[in-house]
């Protein structure tokens, strides 16, 4: 009995992974074939990029502020509060900027993609689209994936910048330290590998957010309850996969660009 349940669960996991791989691969390769839906791509850029900018800026700003507060408490024990700027900028660029932006955008957009596409599935709009001779993968999924990859790249840059500003705000107005010193530390100790590491991760996260969100949306079953289930799955799995992918990417990038 127990073995039967384990076997079924294992098969379900393998089948889901296989279906997701084929789905994500097809969605990406669609860009090389006509028709291409540029208007839908631009609309998604607006929804994902402009729509998420406020939450990304605020979360970036306060994360930078928290980093400055925490580092002040620790670094002051060693008389090293002068390196706060370096600490905040390196941490934001290499790790917290990409990961936090990915998770914030996943919470907002993976859920909206899953619920929007899921609602379209249960109200037969996806079937209607197919019946009208339009491929929903090309029309709905491919534009979302490329828009999410592109927008997450720029949103991460914004989050990094506002994280550094948040750190500066706390350093100058709450910790009463020198602002010039903060920014010079933040700038001088940055290396290209730090920037590369910070900008490769959002490309992968963007792909994960949109592909997982659309995948769960398109396989929705069971009416409105099913839409809710798909939305939860999309947010949970995209967030977990982003953190897992971050772990793998960090390992790979640290091997490629070892710290000095």
């Amino acid at each position: 009995m127990a073995i039967g349940i384990i076997e079924r669960t294992a098969k379900d996991i393998v089948l889901t992974a296989q279906e997701y791989s084929l789905f994500a691969q097809r969605a990406v390769l669609n860009v090389f074939r006509k028709p291409r839906y540029w208007t839908d791509f631009l609309m998604q850029c607006n929804i994902i990029g402009v729509g998420s900018s406020a939450i990304v800026l605020l979360s970036g700003f306060f994360t930078g502020g928290v980093l400055a507060l925490q580092s002040q408490a620790t670094l002051s024990q060693f008389g090293a509060t002068a390196v706060t700027g370096r600490f905040v900028s390196t941490t934001m660029l290499r790790e917290l900027g990409p990961v936090l932006t990915g998770i914030m955008v996943a919470g907002r957009n993976a859920s909206s993609m899953a619920s929007e596409l899921g609602s379209m599935v249960v109200t037969e709009q996806i079937d209607a689209m197919r019946a009208l001779g339009v491929d929903p993968m090309r029309k709905l999924v491919t534009p979302r994936i490329y828009a999410c990859i592109l927008m997450l790249f720029f949103l991460t840059i914004l989050a990094d910048a506002f994280g550094i500003f948040g750190g500066a705000f706390v350093t100058i107005f709450m910790n009463h330290q020198n602002g010039t010193q903060y920014f010079s530390q933040a700038w001088e100790h940055l290396r290209y590998p730090d920037i590369i590491q910070g900008l490769v991760k959002p490309l992968v996260s963007g792909y994960i957010i949109a592909s997982v969100g659309c995948f769960y949306g398109m396989r929705t079953t069971g009416g409105t309850e099913g839409v809710g289930r798909s939305t939860i799955d999309a947010v949970v799995f995209s967030s977990v996969i982003i953190i897992f992918a971050d772990f793998l990417l960090t390992q790979i990038l640290l091997t490629l660009f070892p710290p000095i």
């Binding site: 037969e124 209607a128 019946a131």
Partner: peptide, 19 residues
């Protein structure tokens, strides 16, 4: 199938209009 579907009209149960 897409060219064949274009030659076919389908009316869905609840209309399935795009909201």
């Amino acid at each position: 199938l897409f060219p064949l579907r274009i030659r076919t009209g389908m009316v869905f149960q609840e209309g399935a209009l795009f909201d």
